[in-house]
Amino acid sequence: MTSYRLETAASPEDLARIAAQTIASHLDLALDQRDRAQLALSGGTTPARAYALLGQEHLPWERVDVFLGDERWVDPADASSNARMLRETLMQSGPGARAAFHAVPTVSLPSPDASAEAFAAIVERICSGDPPIFDLMVLGLGDDGHTASLFPGTEAPAVRDRSATVGRGKGLERITLTAPVLSAARQVIFLVSGTAKREALQRLLDPSESPERTPAKLVQPRSTVLVLADSDAAGGVA
């Protein structure tokens, strides 16, 4: 059974600072053990400030491969693009700009299915293992219990025979890593912020919760999952 360790920050600003420091620490450890480190990051509003701070950390970023756990099937210049968010935060300036960013190919290909296939090939080329192993997987948590683009009531959470697939949620088609890849990471961190996420966080931490209702429960690494949450999200969690 998956085990979780919850750490609570007093505010969203504190959460961003703690998240940046924690991610940097894990990357530093991975780079001590291997020539390169593979990092997968979530999109969304919660982690953007953390990524801006992370990009200022003095690490050998030229040895870090950065991926997105999921991406909307939109132009990379679109305001809703996770790739654009990373370029404007982690890779905007400072040391983090030296990282190798392997963006999800989107509208340059004819369909979301073609994009998912191409992204899977990139991940499998750079990450060792079957399924591919990331050193660190940073995930968000939706108020409906989704993570990456594994939305409840859709086909994507059940896909186990490939590294990436098409996720559909909130009116958009998306490209997402699959549950086996999320679970293969050496370390998984969830970043959770805001009162709207409180119930979803309670469900994530509940051993009896169904993965069908809360697909984030499908993330089942061998190591303890670290959950970093602000006090608004963690309030009321037993």
Rank of each mutant, 00 (worst) to 15 (best):
L141S: 01
D144N: 14
T22M: 04
S210N: 10
F119M: 09
L201Q: 04
P95I: 04
L59E: 00
Q202R: 15
F119V: 05
V192H: 01
A83P: 07
E212W: 02
R87H: 14
A120K: 06
R168D: 07
P95L: 04
F190I: 02
L41A: 00
P95N: 08
A100N: 15
A16E: 02
G235N: 14
P211G: 05
E117F: 05
L29D: 15
S25C: 13
A200W: 03
I122W: 12
P112Y: 03
L31F: 06
E199G: 00
L172Q: 13
Q220S: 11
Q21L: 12
L15S: 07
T22E: 13
Q56M: 02
K217Y: 07
R213L: 09
A234S: 12
R125F: 00
R174N: 02
L29A: 15
V107H: 01
R17I: 01
E199P: 00
L191M: 12
I126Y: 08
S208N: 12
E88D: 15
A19Q: 03
R49M: 06
E13C: 04
R162Y: 04
A99P: 09
L90I: 05
R198P: 01
T106Q: 07
L136Q: 04
D113Q: 13
G69M: 02
P95Y: 00
D78F: 00
A30I: 12
R125Y: 00
M91N: 05
T89L: 01
V225D: 05
K170V: 13
Q33C: 11
G69I: 03
T165S: 08
P215D: 13
I126C: 08
G194F: 06
V104M: 11
A184F: 09
R160Q: 09
L15H: 07
L136N: 07
D232E: 14
L182A: 10
E173Q: 15
T154D: 05
L136V: 14
V192T: 03
T178L: 11
A83L: 03
A158D: 11
R36H: 13
T22P: 14
D144P: 03
A156D: 04
L172W: 09
Q187D: 09
Y51Q: 01
L29K: 15
A52E: 10
V159W: 11
P132G: 10
L139P: 08
S93P: 01
A77S: 14
V138H: 03
T147Q: 12
P105E: 06
R63F: 02
F101D: 06
L139A: 10
T89V: 02
P12M: 05
D130Y: 11
A9Q: 00
P76C: 00
V159Q: 09
R36I: 11
A50T: 02
